[in-house]
Computed example of a mutant assay.
Amino acid sequence: MTARTASTSTPLSSRQSFPFVTWFRSRLLARWYDRRLQRLDLAEIDDHLLRDLGLTPQDVRRECAKPFWQA
């Protein structure tokens, strides 16, 4: 009976890693959402401001065509 009780207990290391996984997942989702918003804002910048930034319309199209998970 003691062997069964010992085998069902959860190791301490796996219980401690769960908050990290949750934190990492939430930060990753926040980063992806922020990246999407930045690309939407970039798409709205007019040509005059793009020249000031040193970007071409082709640069903007290329950046905005990327999926949200790509940097």
Rank of each mutant, 00 (worst) to 15 (best):
T22V: 13
W69H: 09
F24G: 03
L37S: 12
T56K: 08
S7Y: 01
R36Y: 11
A6C: 07
M1A: 07
A6W: 10
S9Y: 09
M1I: 03
R62I: 09
A6L: 13
R27S: 12
P67F: 01
T10E: 03
R62L: 11
Q70G: 02
R51H: 09
D41R: 13
E63L: 15
P11M: 07
R4F: 10
R31L: 04
Q58C: 02
D41T: 10
P67G: 02
I45H: 04
S26L: 11
Q38K: 14
R15V: 08
T56V: 04
F20H: 10
W69Q: 10
L49Q: 08
L50W: 00
T22M: 13
S17L: 15
R51L: 12
I45Y: 04
A71W: 02
R36C: 08
M1G: 09
Q70H: 06
S7D: 08
R27K: 14
A71I: 02
L40F: 13
V60Q: 00
Q58A: 08
G54H: 01
R62H: 09
L42E: 09
A3Q: 09
A30T: 14
F68P: 01
K66N: 04
R15G: 06
F18K: 15
L50G: 00
F18I: 13
L49C: 04
Q38W: 10
S17Q: 15
R4T: 07
R15E: 09
Q58F: 01
A3I: 06
R51Q: 13
I45P: 00
R15I: 09
R62W: 09
E63F: 13
F24I: 03
W69S: 06
I45S: 03
T2S: 06
F18N: 10
T10P: 01
Q38N: 12
L28P: 00
L37Q: 14
S7F: 04
W32C: 14
L12Q: 12
L49Y: 03
L29S: 11
L49H: 05
S14A: 15
W32I: 15
F18C: 08
S7C: 05
